[in-house]
Amino acid sequence: NLRWTSEAKTKLKNIPFFARSQAKARIEQLARQAEQDIVTPELVEQARLEFG
């Protein structure tokens, strides 16, 4: 299971509600691909840039 830093959680809250669950799934996918067990603000930002 993935842990989220408080900064990453804050960044996730800045994503519009309607896109948040999809973004969260993508962020967690990116973390797993990078073999990380902690979601960082950088991963959230990477996903945000993908979504535009």
Rank of each mutant, 00 (worst) to 15 (best):
L49C: 07
E35N: 15
E50K: 08
A8G: 02
L12Q: 01
F17Y: 11
T40P: 02
T10Q: 15
R3P: 07
R3G: 04
L12R: 01
F18Y: 14
A19D: 10
R48Q: 11
G52C: 15
E50L: 12
F18W: 15
R48C: 10
P16D: 04
E28D: 03
A25W: 09
F17I: 11
R20Q: 07
R32T: 05
G52T: 14
T40I: 03
K11R: 12
L12E: 01
P41W: 11
R48D: 04
E7M: 07
K11D: 05
N1Q: 14
R3F: 14
A8H: 00
E42R: 05
W4A: 00
A47G: 06
Q46M: 13
D37V: 11
V44Y: 03
N1I: 13
A31S: 03
L12S: 01
L2Q: 02
I38D: 04
A31D: 00
I15A: 03
F18L: 08
R20V: 03
W4V: 00
R3V: 13
R20N: 02
V39N: 00
E35I: 06
K13I: 06
L49Q: 10
I38C: 07
A19N: 11
A25F: 10
K11E: 07
S21Y: 09
P16W: 06
Q46I: 12
S21E: 14
A23N: 02
E42W: 07
L12N: 01
A25Y: 09
R26I: 10
V44H: 00
K24V: 13
F51N: 05
T40W: 04
R3H: 09
K13A: 12
R20T: 03
E45Y: 06
L12K: 01
G52V: 15
R32M: 09
D37N: 12
F18Q: 07
T5R: 02
R48W: 15
A47D: 05
K11L: 15
L49R: 13
I38M: 08
F51I: 11
P41A: 15
F18E: 09
F51W: 13
K11M: 15
E50G: 07
E28P: 01
Q22E: 10
N14E: 15
T10H: 12
F51R: 05
S21Q: 12
E28K: 03
A8C: 02
A25T: 09
K13M: 15
V44T: 01
K9M: 14
A23S: 04
T5S: 11
A19L: 15
Q46W: 10
S6V: 10
A34P: 01
A34T: 11
Q36E: 06
L2M: 10
P16S: 04
S21P: 09
E50T: 09
R26E: 04
E35Y: 12
V39S: 00
I27C: 10
A47M: 07
E50C: 09
F18N: 07
A19M: 15
I15H: 02
V44S: 01
K24T: 05
R32D: 03
E45G: 03
R48L: 15
P16Q: 03
Q36H: 08
Q33E: 14
Q29S: 08
Q33D: 12
K24P: 01
I15K: 02
L49M: 11
L30R: 04
Q46E: 07
I38W: 13
F51A: 06
A47I: 12
F51H: 06
S6Q: 14
I27R: 01
E35Q: 14
R32H: 07
R32N: 05
R3W: 08
L43C: 05
A8N: 00
E35K: 15
E28H: 03
E45D: 13
Q33A: 11
A23F: 13
K9Y: 13
L30W: 09
E35R: 14
L49S: 08
